[in-house]
């Protein structure tokens, strides 16, 4: 690294600052979690994290977060597509609306969604006719997570789409290639890295989400309790080691998943010749 001449010098300094900052902001709080949890013996630790109620919450949190991120990937991409490719009345307004889930206090979102989807709510009363219940069920968790994760996919895919020349689609069409195949083989591969980034961000946000979910989930043990709620519950019972133990496992799973997705992303970038 020191051999190559750079226009902007300072590799040593900037790396030092980066690592120090990362340690202060991210690693220090996280390591305190691990430290606190080490109050427990291994057997106690295992007992806490393998309790059926805790395991159920892990399944719900990670399962619904993945599902919500996947839904957002599909519809976020469509939204981004419309915003980039078409001109329509109120486009700027729609564009601004997309960021709203970022800005809205999550509790407000949660209460609003609950009011909508409750059995007597605007949407809930009609869904009830089909025996579909959203609020106070796992499905409600999904709705809340989809809501808060939407901006991530739109905002990561949008710039890449803007960059994508319409000539590529025209070239494919002139070669006699149909619409679906053009999308699948010409557009999607170019979007995939950005789409994965958006998916990852939406997923990470969903895993950590608390405010909006607890209002709509109903928090029924074994059915609609999310991991952050489990942690809070334990904290309220002054069970600090137990809370940190649950948090620790959550951290490890999250880290493993994020690491996996990032690896996938690097792989797609390499495979499509962009890693140069």
């Amino acid at each position: 690294m020191s051999k190559t001449t750079r226009v902007l010098p300072g590799f040593g300094l900037s790396l030092g600052v980066t690592l120090t900052w990362l340690s202060l902001i991210v690693l220090l709080p996280l390591s305190s979690v691990f430290l606190k949890a080490s109050d427990l013996s291994l057997a106690e630790f295992w007992k806490v994290v393998s309790a059926p109620r805790v395991v159920a919450s892990y399944k719900l949190s990670f399962g619904m977060s993945l599902a919500a991120a996947a839904i957002n990937a599909v519809f976020g991409m469509m939204l981004a597509w419309c915003l980039v490719r078409y001109r329509f009345f109120g486009k700027r307004l729609v564009d601004a609306l997309i960021d709203l889930p970022f800005a809205l206090p999550t509790a407000v979102a949660g209460i609003a969604l609950t009011a909508l989807y409750a059995k007597n709510g605007w949407i809930g009363q009609y869904l009830a006719l089909f025996d579909i219940q959203v609020a106070f069920k796992p499905l409600g968790v999904l709705v809340a997570l989809v809501f808060i994760g939407l901006p991530f996919v739109v905002r990561t895919v949008q710039p890449v789409l803007e960059d994508l020349d319409i000539e590529h689609e025209e070239a494919a069409a002139s070669l006699g290639v149909g619409r679906w195949r053009t999308f699948r083989h010409v557009i999607l591969p170019v979007l995939l890295p950005a789409l994965l980034t958006g998916f990852t961000l939406a997923f990470a946000r969903a895993v950590g989400e608390y405010g909006s979910v607890i209002f709509i989930a109903g928090n029924i043990p074994m059915v609609s309790e999310i991991v952050p709620l489990m942690i809070i519950t334990k904290l309220e019972q002054y069970d600090y080691p137990g809370a940190t133990a649950v948090a620790e496992v959550m951290l490890l799973i999250s880290f493993a998943l994020l690491f996996l997705i990032n690896g996938l992303q690097a792989w797609t970038a390499r495979r499509t010749g962009r890693d140069r």
């Binding site: 000539e167 590529h168 025209e170 070239a171 002139s174 499509t272 010749g273 962009r274």
Partner: peptide, 16 residues
């Protein structure tokens, strides 16, 4: 069945 060649090539950049 027309072959079209673009000014800016329009090659698929993710393909060899």
């Amino acid at each position: 069945q027309v072959g079209f060649v673009f000014q800016h090539y329009a090659l698929f950049r993710h393909m060899t």
